[in-house]
Design a protein around this nucleic acid. Structure first.
Lengths: 194, 194
DNA sequence: GTCTATACGTGGATAGAC
DNA sequence: GTCTATCCACGTATAGAC
């Protein structure tokens, strides 16, 4: 793509983040150079520093944006725990399937965050997990679920659902609807729902 | 540790692999330099090349050793599918909990393998997954399990079980026995066993 | 078998011209 | 806002002395 020199305010910034996202997910943060990101965008390496103070901020901003977006799309709705659990399973699988790169980075690049950044991302993740734990506790209290240790079950369910991203491909043997149905069946049984 | 110059045949080799294992798991393959591994062992970088042709081989050998050890410790035993499934769950959790570094590398560093090495590791992983799938198919055929899609259930169970490694710590709130019991309870229910 | 020294490429980040 | 040029640290890997 031929590119002309000039002003691209408001265009290059997002393209930098998108290129970083793709490359970090594909090769890993440590294996991606600023030059590689610049090449993907179609600029020279120096130009990147108009959009990020450094490489670490690029990683952190991607992870924070992903986690915050995840949290804004969920809610602490009240109501039938069984319905809420089913909605959670469906939402989690679909949301993650739609954003494989973001999910991959959020899980794989935690150790490449500087300590302060790591703490902030972990807090966001904990907030998300708490939403599922809340559903399980409510269901257990209402006698709808048989869950002896909601914390463990929360982690087990999230690990199971997130695992879909390691193998699911659009156009494969199963549609996303079928995948959601299969996992909902397993989750429902695992929590002892009728 | 003061170290003298001299011969260490049969000693330094394992220490190199152990140092690489620890550092790769902690910081990631791409972020670990040969100098860092050498420093951990207590030798100069050049000396490492007496034990490995290059950094890539170091990674591949660690992953292959882990997967092959995993496979030698499992079997295609016949018998009651419910018993075999319970044994699988217990084995998987305990084996992985005992080797957090190996497990972490085996799951996180796949993308840093050269194509040929990647293919070989993936084949080993597939062999392991097939063992669980076989148990589920046998159980479904015998009417002991209600599993509509054994492939999906296999992947879901393995993801769930392997997830234990992200949070389990010796001396924490739960013992490993308790963790195994909790997960077995979930798996048993999820496959629809009585 | 390990050391020191080094070749040579690439890394993140900055300066200053345009 | 982007480019070119550059600084300097660090990367893998090798050569040759001991």
């Amino acid at each position: 793509m031929a590119r002309t020199t000039g002003s691209h305010a408001g265009i290059t910034g997002p393209r930098v983040r998108q290129a970083a996202l793709r490359l970090f997910a594909q090769r890993g943060y440590a294996a991606v150079s600023m030059r590689a990101i610049a090449a993907e965008v179609g600029v020279q390496a120096g130009a990147l520093y108009n959009y990020t103070p450094d490489k670490q901020s690029l990683l952190f901003d991607l992870m924070r944006a992903h986690m915050e977006d995840l949290l804004t799309q969920t809610s602490d709705a009240q109501g039938d725990p069984l319905v809420r659990l089913k909605d959670f399973v469906s939402f989690h699988i679909r949301y993650h399937a739609d954003r494989p790169d973001e999910v991959f980075i959020a899980y794989m690049e935690l150790r490449n965050l500087e300590p302060e950044n790591f703490t902030r991302i972990e807090a966001l993740r904990r907030t998300y997990e708490d939403q599922l734990e809340r559903i399980l506790c409510d269901g257990a209290a209402a006698g709808v679920f048989r869950v002896s240790d909601p914390k463990i079950v929360t982690l087990a369910i999230i690990a199971m659902l997130t695992g879909v991203n390691t193998w699911f491909r659009e156009g494969g043997r199963l549609s996303l609807d079928e995948v959601v149905a299969q996992y909902w069946d397993m989750v429902r049984k695992a929590v002892g729902a009728a």
